[in-house]
Amino acid sequence: MIIDHPLLGPRDAAEFVYLGDASLIDRPDWQDEDAARQFHDYLHVRDNPAGEHRELWFHEHGDRSWLVVTRNTLTHEIIRVELARDVALSLGRGR
């Protein structure tokens, strides 16, 4: 596979390490009342769609960027690649 890195252009997927569902960015607040349940769902329960999937890849043998890749799990077609940091910031994650 080839991932079109937003900063570096197309790079072989062998340079990357896969983590999984991009929802792992949405880490719950530890002080919420039902934090235990939220953390359980956050870590373990996935949509696992047959179709478009937003997922995290780490450019370990490259620029060390975490990327959010939108990829079709039926065809492997990659629709979009974003810097995960930008996605996290857009989701309101900060300090």
Binding site: A13, N48, A50, E55
Partner: peptide, 13 residues
């Protein structure tokens, strides 16, 4: 292979 997929095929690496 290590990535989510429903395609019954993988890659060369």
């Amino acid at each position: 292979d290590g990535y989510n997929t429903y395609a019954q095929r993988g890659n060369l690496p």
